[in-house]
Nucleic acid binder design. Structure first.
Lengths: 210, 210
DNA sequence: ATCGCTGGATTGTTGAACAATCCAGCAGAT
DNA sequence: ATCTGCTGGATTGTTCAACAATCCAGCGAT
């Protein structure tokens, strides 16, 4: 019976509120307030803050407080640079049949969500897709790096910015990437994925950065 | 005048002791002991522990304590998987003349250390070399990921395991990689780097893993 | 030898306290 | 009116002491 520590539960609760958009980027988190709201001690909140700051979800400014992280213009390029590195490298190395099946499953999850007009489901399906690609490499470290990057993106590219317009593109594209992967055409799969990431970065930059 | 917080100084001190091999992998760190040794409170030590655990330098086992991280057989492959992803991707994208010059500088640093028979200097020159390659990408996130990976490797592949025999190989190889980079032959530079990483993984596995 | 208990040590968490720092707002000077 | 410098309140950084929860080595009974 795993009983996560209080600090872990606080961190988890904050992660949830961040992902859900309840805490907006730039907002200040006051230790005493959060401690009272969640019914824990201030020291415990501090430990949770340290954890989330290490994940780049919160930003700690010494003597001023912790704030919900914000992605500046440069960060968008930065995030995509990491994604290009680890996603393309992972897909180019292929993976076990089970891992490839997981990629396929994520593609179908997206198609189902599209049929159901489930916009939120589409978003998470896409994240599952890219997570599954990294999972091909069977590397714990790459998986956690990717999970953190995705959490960062959830934080900033929030539901509001995601419209059906975007999704229409990559639904078919994910399918092609997956097919290439299944067929063992790893170079082509990598090229397609790279092209997608480049285009996605451009789109996001056009919307947010300047 | 930046005055790092006490928790940061504790973390820094522990990082130093870890890198220096003063704390060996698997060793247990007792909160009260460290707090007393460094003259700080137990809560502050805990905050430092959280930071280092996030960097994978310490391992936290709930209700049991924190231990100096150990690299299992699988971790070696894992670490090299990350390095292949980010180093090869970085070098394939090239970089500004300044960044390339930094790579060249690391090569020369290694050559100087070799002439001086400075084994320790050779080790850090090599780390600077690979750090400079990742720095080509101008990505803060990639840089910190790489810095953490290198810190992990320092922790485990310690001085004891590094003999001059190893270094002889890559001194010349680093030179070739750097030359290819300078000449704009990015594909070749990437291939050379990839070959080096694969061989290095094999060597390390032969020594440590089983 | 195995099992179960027990007591001491360590971790997890709390609450309170205080120093250090920041910041908004205000008083006075130019 | 704008600037400067102060001040007081709020918040963070850090410590301390306490206690509950958990672990573990050792010991005794079977």
């Amino acid at each position: 019976m795993r009983v996560p520590s209080v600090a872990e539960r606080v961190a988890e609760e904050l992660r949830y509120q961040l992902a859900e958009g309840f805490l907006v980027p730039g907002a200040k988190l006051t230790e005493a307030t959060i401690a009272e709201d969640l019914g824990v001690s201030r020291n415990t909140v501090r430990e949770a803050f340290a954890e989330l700051a290490a994940e780049r979800l919160l930003l700690r400014q010494p003597n001023k407080g912790v704030f919900v992280a914000t992605l500046e213009a440069g960060d968008i390029h930065d995030v995509y640079t990491v994604r290009r590195a680890i996603e393309v490298s992972s897909i180019r190395a292929g993976g076990s049949p089970e891992r490839i099946a997981a990629v396929r499953a994520a593609v179908e999850e997206g198609q189902r969500a599209a049929s159901a007009n489930d916009n939120e489901g589409l978003g998470s399906a896409n994240q599952h897709f890219h997570g599954a690609i990294v999972a091909l490499a069977e590397s714990n470290r790459l998986n956690t790096i990717m999970a953190q990057i995705l959490a960062e993106m959830r934080l900033y590219f929030h539901k509001a910015t995601m419209n059906a317009h975007f999704y229409s593109d990559w639904l078919k594209e994910n399918e092609q990437i997956c097919s290439a992967l299944e067929a063992g055409e790893l170079e082509r799969a990598g090229d397609l994925l790279l092209a997608y990431l480049n285009r996605s970065e451009q789109q996001q930059t056009a919307i947010h950065g300047e």
